[in-house]
Design a protein around this nucleic acid. Structure first.
Lengths: 102, 102
DNA sequence: GCCGTAGTACGTTGGAGATCGTAGTATGAT
DNA sequence: ATCATACTACGATCTCCAACGTACTACGGC
């Protein structure tokens, strides 16, 4: 067995640049929306996305590295979660306004 | 004398995708910040930006086409303004959260 | 052990966009 | 008319990134 720990930026390492760039992509906004709609605790494959598996891996990674989501292994699957508190702390109102926009 | 009218999207034509993509660039966020800091009524050249004039023209254009700013000729200069009301109407809280972030 | 599931790594491709320089236009002042 | 100012248009790079397919690893069940 190997380590399998995914790197996440600390709360203070989350930048407005990274978050806005991450959220500028419609596929990634879709992931965030689905997470916000109680789609939490789900594997990556459970999301409804118009791209292949390898592309979706890329998008989840961008979201994680920007500090928008957390990813933790659970068996072979990955447990995805929105970093609501961290985002609300760093950039109050940003996540909500983007979610509200559709 | 020639027309010299710059195209702007109507309020309802402003998309979250366009706005987030526009605001994802640090140079453009700097323009928006300076506009918000009472830097209104200013020519493009009056902004403090780390790029050449032609590049700054590009960025102002992107902001205008995304519906973030208005641009109107005033002599040879351009009068730039933030579309606060339109943005607040379409995506409440978004502009403020981005401005707050620095 | 073997297989299926979930996701990653890697290389490639295509398209978008950030940057620049040069040449140009419109306006206002002299 | 001439000139300076402010900005644009255009073309050229160059970089980034979204997307894909293939090959791979890790885990869990049989």
């Amino acid at each position: 067995m190997v380590v399998r720990i995914l790197e996440h930026p600390g709360r203070d390492a989350i930048t407005i640049d990274g978050v806005l760039s991450a959220l500028a992509d419609p596929v990634r906004r879709s992931i965030v929306s689905q997470l916000a709609d109680g789609h939490s605790e789900q594997a990556c494959i459970a999301f409804d996305l118009p791209v292949t598996k390898s592309t979706s891996t890329h998008h989840f990674r961008v979201l994680r590295e920007a500090g928008v989501i957390t990813q933790r292994y659970r068996g072979t699957a990955i447990h995805n979660d929105l970093r609501r508190e961290d985002l609300d702390c760093r950039f109050p109102g940003l996540l909500d306004s983007v979610l509200m926009a559709g």
